[in-house]
Amino acid sequence: MTSTVATASTNFFLAAAENRCSCYTLTNSSPISDARIRDIVVSAVKHSPSAFNVQSTRAVVLVKQDHQKLWDFGDAALKKAMPEQAYAGLAAKVQGFRAAYGTVLWFEDQSGLDALKQKNAALQHVIPQWSSHSSGMAQLVVWTALELEGLGCNLQHYNFMSEFREKVRNEWNIPETWALHSQLVFGAPLDGLKRSRERTYLPLEDRVKMFGRD
């Protein structure tokens, strides 16, 4: 690969990362096939890095009626978990998730992580952090790739409710060792990919340091 081509590829990659945003006005349609969505998730799970190559990240893709069922579970669990006034303020958001096309459920397989702890006793305390790093990288790859294909996405964490976790596990026969981390909701944007508010940035000189440069 020539340096010019490499630079162009890098710039395209960085632009995709820069343009990624949370989109909440989603429809129950998709500009790409279900097979293409699955291929993107498979590629991300396969190629995203993990500590000691433990490959602990797992994903379940729900579309159409299964996606809607997921957010019916979310609504029911939220109604039980939250005070009435708090639920009233969140119910419309859940219906917005339900109105989308699909959700990628992100899990980490604890059996592989437990085995890694046994092999590396001195590092047990940091392995959960590494697990979260692996999951986050795979999620970002899928989120960015789906946006490049014309889908909007937003990331949710309704797994804080035990009833929601159990409903998910029972409905889709999820292995006991898979721990639910997040839910990436996606669908065709209702009015295009745009931010709900302007993104602001803290001073980068306070966030990035470099030493030993030319």
Rank of each mutant, 00 (worst) to 15 (best):
L151G: 05
S29P: 02
Y101L: 05
K209W: 08
T57G: 05
H133L: 11
N154C: 14
N173H: 06
S196P: 07
S132P: 00
S132E: 12
P128L: 00
G150L: 06
E163Q: 11
M137G: 04
V141H: 10
D39T: 15
Y201W: 13
F13M: 13
L184H: 03
W143M: 06
A6M: 13
I37N: 07
S182K: 06
L105I: 02
E166H: 03
N173T: 07
Q124N: 07
G152V: 07
V61H: 06
G102R: 01
L116R: 03
T144F: 03
Q65C: 03
T177G: 00
R20K: 14
G102H: 02
N154W: 08
Q110C: 02
Q95N: 09
V126R: 04
A122M: 07
C21E: 13
L123S: 12
V45F: 05
S182I: 07
S43D: 15
D75A: 14
Q65M: 06
D34N: 15
L140S: 04
R213W: 14
Y87N: 01
F97G: 03
V142Q: 03
A44S: 14
Q85I: 14
E149P: 00
K117G: 01
W130N: 07
Q156I: 05
E84H: 05
A51K: 00
T177H: 04
Q118N: 12
P189A: 05
G136S: 11
K69Q: 14
R195H: 10
A77M: 04
V142S: 03
A188V: 06
E18H: 14
L184Y: 06
T27C: 12
N159C: 12
V208P: 05
F97I: 02
K80S: 07
A17M: 15
R213K: 13
M161C: 04
N53L: 15
A51W: 11
N120D: 04
L204E: 10
D34S: 14
H181I: 15
Q124K: 11
K167S: 14
H67G: 07
D72A: 07
H125W: 06
R195S: 12
S132H: 11
L105E: 01
Q129N: 10
A121P: 03
Y101H: 13
Q183K: 02
S3M: 09
M82P: 02
R36V: 15
F211P: 00
A59Y: 04
A91E: 12
K117T: 07
F52S: 07
H181P: 00
E18K: 15
Y87Q: 02
